[in-house]
Amino acid sequence: MNLYVKNFLKFALIVLLQVLILNKIVLRWWPEPSGFPLFIPYIYPLYILLLPFETPVWALVIIGFILGITVDSFENTAGIHAFATVFIAYLRTNVLNALMPRNLSDYANQSPSIKNMGWMPFLVYSSFLILLHHILFFSIELWSFSNIGYLFLKILASALTSMLFIIVYLLLFTKQSSTRS
């Protein structure tokens, strides 16, 4: 399948998964003490993380904006998702350069995945950018540091849960090679 068509379908899949299913799943780690924050898991930034290695930064930023504004339009958040997504899209290439042993241009026609990066580097890469996305998103959304402990807890709980969902997504939607490594 054409790379562009494939990535477009992936875009549609991940946005629909986010807005129609995950946005309805309001989670809380435990109900007592009742001050524990409610949140919904966000997996849509994963789309940015999974674009092919050699995607230029300008394309990443534009795709990030389109992705963010799409989610914004479903959630009435007026550009907050777009901001956070553009930010991590901009940083993505730098983080990958720091983590990958070889030059990024050596990985022609490949996307970041557990298979070609290994578990640890991939988890570091995705959890760092996801955490950054969540910090930006939740602090702009609440726009006040009067209750910083609550904000911190919400970011932490939400980022960890999002990572869990992302790992599940990866296990579900990556092709398993016949020889398990």
Binding site: I40, E75, W143
Partner: peptide, 8 residues
Amino acid sequence: NNSISAAN
């Protein structure tokens, strides 16, 4: 559509 977990 309904949300309760956001700040707004």
